[in-house]
Structures are given as structure tokens and as C-alpha cells.
Design a binder for these strands. Structure first.
Lengths: 188, 188
DNA sequence: TTTTAGGTACACAGACCTGTGTAATTGCGC
DNA sequence: GCGCAATTACACAGGTCTGTGTACCTAAAA
């Protein structure tokens, strides 16, 4: 008989499945029974690893908190590549917007811990932009970083609704103009 | 005794309340009982006006489908005023993002009718921008209108998460640069 | 071999949800 | 006063959800 524990890390398996279902179908739309059934474990096992659905939601979002890995490309290219990467992700049928924005939209403002993670994520990306802009000696790196963050979330929201990956290219073009206007040399 | 029907239009009263609760707390978070109780009517009355919760959700979104009224201000000023208006709305404690984006995030892609309304709304605003840009003889009105629409949804998403009305000003500044770059004379 | 950690099966409590059925009541136009 | 349409109170069916309780099982370590 097959071992009852195919993978050693049951917690990670639960999180993987919760991520897929929460993200694609919505946090409120998915019950813990559904997650357990999808993995083929009992609901009891799930509750042995996470004390509550709320804890699972929090862990799901924390697992989504991934920043771009360091790159040796020039800063301006890294910034524009962000939007190329988004366009690729938009083209996948499994893209359904920003999990943090969606979670705040679904769970409401009263859910403090979820909002806290979402704010941290948004700010960390803004700071990632700001860091690159500082390397480019941009005058108002602070403001421009915010504008780039707005462009990112804007094309994500537009694609979520319209299912139109070209929204990423529109945002990229806007970013290019903003960079040029700030005195940054940009290729295309 | 006070009349049982303070306002003549019960349907509108239901919609008003559904709007408030759906928008502020989420569509899935609010049950029809809650809506009826908030108005002080019986659930039966609600179901006499709307055949199902789905119908109520659709009506809620259709009621939110409001475009800016015509203005005699110059086109460029109208475009920038959009972001000023957003900043004012962000400052209200009752602002909780774009109801269409939130509904798509909550109800998922399988809900065709909701997505259809959301797409129509996004496109109508994009066309509103495009119309103004055409009046300004902008070369690529199509593309620039899309970029402005991205800025709008971007600052809305950012404010939803961060509760920071200044996101609207960041978007406004980006819009100003994009307009200037397209050859439009903009005051401030 | 015995202990032990982790998993399973399954029932269940208690809450909430959408939607319906029904009979009584109310206010308004006629 | 009378009829009518809207509204009410209230129970209920049937479903879902989160979370727990319990007894059993299995595999690997001691």
C-alpha cells in the first residue's frame, strides 16, 4: 500500500492546495472541507496543522509574499521588465489578480491582520522600485516609485476584469514615459 | 401610527441598503436577512421585489454604473479633475475600492453576468477618456486612454489596501506627465 | 515488542445561508 | 364600507460552513 504520507511536509501540501483554491476561487468561496478533499486528507488533519481557517488564510498570504530576486540587469531595464513579467502572467489562465488586493476586497477592512500583510507587500514593492530609482539618480524617487506601484496595481486590476494581458503593455509604456520624463535613459 | 411605507419606492430602498452593505462589507459577507433587517422589512418583501440574491447583486452593480456628467471645463482639466475627485472620495471612510473590481474578485470569473457589467464599466470610462483626448488631438488617444484607465484603477487598488488618499495625487501627477508628453498643454 | 506521533473515519454541534409557503394584517383607492 | 395589493410574521426545508470529539489505525522509533 502506498505510504500515507507521500510528501514529508504535510503543512506545505496543505498550503499549496489552499493557495491554488483560495487564489483561483476566492477565500470565502472555499471551505476547509474542499481543501482537505482536494488533497485527499481528512479535515481533522488539516486542523491539526492550522488552528483555524483564519490562520490558514494568513499563512496563504504570507507564502505569497515573494519579492523579485536580485538581478544584474540595469535598474531601468529591471523596472520595465516588471511589466513584461506581468504580461506573461496575465496570459496564464490561472492569473486572477493580486491575492492581497483580492483578500482585502473579500474580507473587508475589519480584518486587521490580512490588511497588515497586504500593506506590507504593497510597500515592499514600492520600496523595490524606489531602490532602483535611487541607483538612477532620479530626483523624486519617492514619488516616481509610488507612481510605478500605481501602474502595477492598475494593470492587474484591469486584467482581472477584462482578461486582457495588453493592459501590462499599456502600463509599461506609461512607465517608460515617466522614466524618460525623470531623465532616465531608456532603450525601448 | 407611522405609515409602514415611509418612502414610496420600496425597491429603491432595498437597493440603497444592499448597496451600502454589499459595498462596505462584501457581497458574500452580507446575507439577505441582514439587508431586510437593516431596512426593517421582512425577508419575504425583499424576495417579492428581487427573485434571488443574484438578481439583487446584478441590480446593485447596475446602479453603480454611473458615468461623469458632462462638463464644460476644458478636456485636459476634466481628465485631471478625475483624480482630484478620486482623492476626495478616498478621504471618506466609506470608500472601499471599485465595486466592480471587488465583485469580480469576490465572485470569481465563473460569474459571467457580473464580469460583463464590470467589463462594460471599465470600458465606458476608458472611452470617456478617449473622447476627451480626441478633442485634444492627441496622436494615440486609444493607448493614452488605456493608460489613464490603468492609473485610475491603480490608485483605487492602492488606496483600498493602504487607506492613503495621496495615491490619487500620485496618479494625477503621472497623468499630467503622460498628457504633457502627448503634447497636451496642462496648467498644473 | 511496545510506545508514540500522526493520520483516518465519521458523527455532530451550532451557526448561517438562500429561498419558499402560508395565513394574517395593513393601508389605500374606490 | 370593500376589495386589493403590498407587507408581515413565522416556520421550515435543505444546504453550507467552521470547528470539535472520539475511537481506530499505521508506521516508524525505542
Amino acid at each position: 500500500m502506498a505510504s500515507l504520507q507521500k510528501k514529508p511536509d504535510m503543512k506545505e501540501r496543505i498550503l499549496e492546495t489552499a493557495d491554488k483554491l483560495f487564489y483561483l476561487q476566492g477565500i470565502r468561496a472555499i471551505g476547509v472541507d474542499t481543501i482537505a478533499a482536494e488533497i485527499g486528507i481528512s479535515k481533522r488533519t488539516l486542523y491539526n496543522h492550522f488552528p483555524s481557517k483564519d490562520a490558514l488564510i494568513t499563512a496563504y498570504l504570507e507564502r505569497r509574499f515573494v519579492l523579485p530576486r536580485p538581478s544584474d540587469k540595469p535598474p531601468a531595464a529591471q523596472i520595465l521588465a516588471t511589466f513584461d513579467s506581468l504580461e506573461r502572467r496575465f496570459s496564464s489562465k490561472d492569473f486572477r489578480g493580486c491575492p492581497f488586493v483580492n483578500a482585502v476586497a473579500e474580507l473587508g477592512a475589519e480584518d486587521k491582520s490580512v490588511r497588515k500583510i497586504a500593506v506590507a507587500f504593497k510597500e515592499s514593492r514600492r520600496l523595490w522600485f524606489r531602490n532602483l530609482l535611487n541607483q538612477l539618480d532620479v530626483a523624486d524617487a519617492e514619488g516616481l516609485a509610488t507612481q510605478l506601484a500605481v501602474l502595477v496595481d492598475g494593470c492587474i486590476a484591469q486584467d482581472l476584469v477584462r482578461n486582457d494581458p495588453s493592459m501590462a503593455r499599456a502600463a509599461r509604456e506609461a512607465a517608460r514615459v515617466l522614466l524618460k520624463n525623470a531623465g532616465v535613459k531608456v532603450s525601448a
